[in-house]
Each structure stands twice: as C-alpha cells, then as structure tokens.
C-alpha cells in the first residue's frame, strides 16, 4: 500500500536487508535530485520571465534570451517532475486489474509492470542515440547553448525511471506491494 518514495516502510517491515535499504536510498536520492532540478528550473524561469515582462512594459526593453531559456529549462523541469512522480509511484495508470488480483498474482502483475517499464525506458534511451548525436550540431540562436543539453534531460529522466523501476522490481521479488492506491496522489487533469 505504499508508494516507492522516501524511506520505504515496507522495507522496514521486512527487516530491511542492507540491499533493500540501499535501494530505498537510491530511490530517495533520485527523487531528491528530481526535486532540486525541477524547483531550480521553475524558479529560474519564473524570475527570468517576470523580469522580462516588467522590463518590457515599464522600460520598453526585454531580455532577448527570456524567450529561448525554456528550450533548455522546460525539459529539465519536466524531467525532474517525472522522476519525482516515478519515485512516488504516481504516474497515471488504470489499476482495475491490480485491484482485482490478490496475493501472489498481484505481485506477479507488479513484476510484469516494472519489467515493462524498464524495457521501455531502456529502449527509448538505446534507440534515441542518433537523435542525441544530431542534437550536438544544433545551437540555440540567442543563448548559444547546444541542443544536446536539453536532450540530456531525457537521458537523465529515463535512466532514473529505469533505476526506480528496477528498485521496485527487487522489492516485488521480496514480496513487497509497490502500488500506490490513493487516486488523489495520481492527480493529473
């Protein structure tokens, strides 16, 4: 009944083997990195855009790069937020089947889900190499930053997603239910 984030109560209940504690620490670390990255990007864009609006209306001059900064920072905000959501098990899913299944079958289903997530995340990373290579050639015009710095956010996000799913998978094998049932936590619309 617990989300995967933070100090995992399930792990504690199970006597918290050092390995499980290590995995809980990994998930916690990833979630924290997501928070720091996302909040920093959000705050920076807020200040830059607000300053630009004020300058434009009050002094008829803006910050030219204010219109381009999101090209690098929005992907990182999204990536950070996505890592937080994954660590807390709050990506939106249709959990009907998981609700019906009980006991061992339920754990088997969770194992299948985590394996699928790992395959998809690694697949995206592996198949995306040509695009990453291409993005090294492109420079944002007013910022002078290479596009690849923006794409790097997706590498971070999907690597973290795969790691988090791996940690959850190990927990499932130890008999821990990793699904979050609270729909309020899965808010989206």
């Amino acid at each position: 009944m617990t989300g995967a984030g933070g100090p995992v109560p399930g792990a504690a209940r199970k006597g918290a083997s050092p390995f499980l504690r290590l995995l809980a620490g990994l998930t916690f670390l990833l979630e924290s990195s997501g928070k720091v990255i996302a909040v920093a990007c959000l705050a920076f864009m807020f200040v830059a855009l607000l300053t630009n609006v004020i300058l434009r209306y009050a002094f008829d001059s803006g910050i030219p790069w204010a219109y381009e900064i999101h090209a690098v920072l929005l992907p990182w905000l999204v990536a950070g937020g996505l890592v937080i959501a994954s660590a807390r098990g709050r990506n939106i899913a249709i959990t009907l089947l998981a609700e019906i299944l009980q006991g061992r079958k339920r754990l088997v289903l969770q194992a299948i889900i985590q394996v699928t997530i790992i395959i998809i995340a690694l697949g995206v990373l592996w198949s995306g190499q040509p695009i990453l290579k291409a993005s090294r050639f492109q420079t944002l015009s007013t910022l002078g930053i290479k596009q690849v710095w923006g794409y790097a956010s997706l590498v971070y996000a999907f690597a973290a997603i795969a790691l988090i799913a791996f940690a959850d998978l190990v927990r499932v094998f130890r008999g821990i239910d990793v699904m979050d049932h609270d729909p309020e936590n899965a808010s989206l619309s």
């Binding site: 996302a38 905000l77 937020g81 937080i84 939106i92």
Partner: peptide, 17 residues
Amino acid sequence: WAACVETAMMTGAVMFI
C-alpha cells in the same frame, strides 16, 4: 517549496503523457 515540488510532479506527469 511544497507548492513547487507538487507543481513539478504534476507538470512531469501531465507533460509525460
């Protein structure tokens, strides 16, 4: 801080879809 983290997570989940 809490509002920013909540916003980031919602943005991440919405934007991922």
